[in-house]
Amino acid sequence: MRAITERDVRSCFVNCSKGDAKRLNLPKDFAQSPWTGLDFLGWRDPKAPDRAYLIAEKDDRLTGVALRLASAPGKARGFNSTSLCSFCHTAHTGGGVALMSARRSGDAGKQGNTVGRYLCADLSCSLYVRGMKQTLMGDGHDDGVPLEEKVARIKTNLDAFITSITT
């Protein structure tokens, strides 16, 4: 992903108002984001734990999506359960995966329609597949699938998710 500015962030959201985008809290380490190692920028709102955001490049444009967590991670599922992220297919125990929903854009969103996916609760898919971050299960990123295929899988799943929000 290319490096982006705060202005880029606040102007690219497709499923929230300009006022909501203006008020959202950026990640505390935004300026130090490892841009070349990211397939998308994703973060949980540090001041509103039930909110999250992701920004990706789609059709050579930045597209931002505001997300809501369906329930607090770890509450709906026990620590011994294992869940899989819909984007990167990283396995997590306990609250490592959360159901996140996004209001659809346009009239569908105004009618209350949403799209949901089970995602890494910290939205660090890019770091997990590159072995730059580990789950509680340990170093599970080496499953024999080449990195290029893992990255392509994230991008394909992310693109389908964004398309389901914007169409």
Results as ranks from 00 to 15, higher is better:
residue 2 R to C: 05
residue 5 T to F: 04
residue 6 E to F: 04
residue 9 V to T: 10
residue 10 R to M: 06
residue 10 R to D: 05
residue 11 S to M: 03
residue 11 S to L: 10
residue 12 C to T: 06
residue 13 F to A: 00
residue 15 N to G: 01
residue 16 C to Q: 04
residue 16 C to A: 10
residue 18 K to W: 06
residue 19 G to T: 13
residue 20 D to M: 10
residue 21 A to S: 11
residue 23 R to W: 09
residue 27 P to C: 11
residue 30 F to Q: 12
residue 32 Q to F: 06
residue 35 W to S: 08
residue 36 T to F: 09
residue 40 F to N: 02
residue 41 L to M: 09
residue 41 L to Q: 10
residue 45 D to M: 04
residue 47 K to W: 00
residue 47 K to F: 15
residue 48 A to H: 14
residue 48 A to M: 15
residue 48 A to Y: 08
residue 50 D to H: 13
residue 54 L to A: 02
residue 56 A to W: 03
residue 67 L to H: 04
residue 69 L to N: 01
residue 70 A to V: 09
residue 70 A to M: 07
residue 71 S to F: 10
residue 75 K to F: 06
residue 78 G to S: 11
residue 83 S to M: 13
residue 84 L to I: 14
residue 85 C to T: 03
residue 87 F to L: 13
residue 91 A to M: 13
residue 92 H to F: 15
residue 92 H to Y: 12
residue 100 M to N: 00
residue 100 M to S: 00
residue 100 M to C: 09
residue 101 S to Q: 00
residue 107 D to V: 14
residue 110 K to D: 10
residue 112 G to D: 00
residue 112 G to N: 01
residue 115 V to D: 00
residue 120 C to G: 05
residue 123 L to V: 05
residue 128 Y to E: 03
residue 129 V to C: 09
residue 130 R to E: 05
residue 136 L to C: 07
residue 137 M to A: 12
residue 138 G to R: 04
residue 138 G to Y: 02
residue 141 H to V: 01
residue 142 D to F: 06
residue 143 D to Q: 07
residue 148 E to I: 10
residue 151 V to I: 15
residue 152 A to R: 12
residue 153 R to L: 14
residue 154 I to G: 00
residue 157 N to H: 08
residue 162 I to K: 01
residue 165 I to P: 02
residue 167 T to Q: 08
residue 167 T to R: 12
residue 167 T to W: 08
